[in-house]
Each structure stands twice: as C-alpha cells, then as structure tokens.
C-alpha cells in the first residue's frame, strides 16, 4: 500500500495537469527504508513528449546525489499518461529499476477526473496496490 499526504498527492496531480499534453515526471524522496514519501521533486521530462518521458540525465545525477547525502531514496517515482489509462505500459515496465519504489501513474486524459494509481514493478511483474491519502489535521 502507498500512504501519501494530501499535499504531496495534490502536487503530483497539479504537475501532471500543468505539463499536459506532455508527460510529466518526478519523484518523492523519503528516508531510506522508511517507505515515507516526504520530499517532492519535480523533474524535467527531457523528451518533452506526449507519449514518452525520460529524466534529464544531469538533473537525475544532481537529485540522486542529494538523496545520497540525505540518506534518502526515491520512495515514489511518478509520471503521467496524457491519453491513456494510468496503468504501466510495456516501456514503463522494461525501464522500471527500483524494486523498492512505488510507481505512481496519473492520467490526464479527462480534465475533470483524477486517475491516480500506484504499482510495484519487480522483475517485470506489475502489481497494483491501494493508495491511502492522509489528510493533514
């Protein structure tokens, strides 16, 4: 299961809407081993494409180093699909390389409806998991 604060959930959805019709992507970092997504990091889609995304390699190095220094890991890796459902594509699965991460997919195909789903992708096997949104008091 993915537990995520409302404020971070809203930031991911807002990023996906803002970059539509291109795919948006980013991560949410958290302390290593904690499974707590805490630090939202929007990434550049180096492809600037409605059908593909790829983290800019220099920006990725910078962000991964920051995580290293803070003893963090990417708890969530998110991206959007702009015309199809929020389900990992074959390309998504072939690139998935963080067995501990929650892969979040947001679809922006319908401007009125939020589709926000989370998956584990391990050795090419996709498993959907429930998303619990934690409302802050």
């Amino acid at each position: 299961m993915l537990r995520i604060d409302r404020s971070i959930y809203d930031k991911i959805v807002a990023h996906a809407r803002r970059d539509h019709p291109d795919e948006a992507c980013g991560i949410v970092a958290g302390p290593e081993g904690s499974d707590r997504p805490e630090r939202f990091v929007e990434m550049i889609n180096a492809e600037r494409s409605p059908t593909f995304y790829r983290f800019d390699s220099r920006e990725q190095l910078k962000v991964w180093r920051e995580m290293d220094e803070r003893d963090e890991e990417p708890v969530i890796i998110y991206h959007s699909h702009t015309a199809t459902e929020a389900y990992p594509s074959r390309t998504d699965v072939s690139y998935a390389s963080e067995p501990n991460a929650h892969y979040v997919l947001v679809s922006t195909r319908d401007p009125e409806t939020v589709e926000f789903r989370s998956y584990r992708i391990v050795d090419g096997v996709v498993t959907e998991e429930p998303v619990e949104i934690v409302e802050q008091g």
């Binding site: 390699s57 990725q60 991206h79």
Partner: peptide, 12 residues
C-alpha cells in the same frame, strides 16, 4: 564514475 539506471517510460 557513477552508474544510475535511467528513469524513463511512456504510454506505449
């Protein structure tokens, strides 16, 4: 030398 898996994907 730093090795990182590329993070990429797409709808197809």
């Amino acid at each position: 030398v730093t090795v990182l898996p590329a993070v990429a994907g797409g709808m197809r």
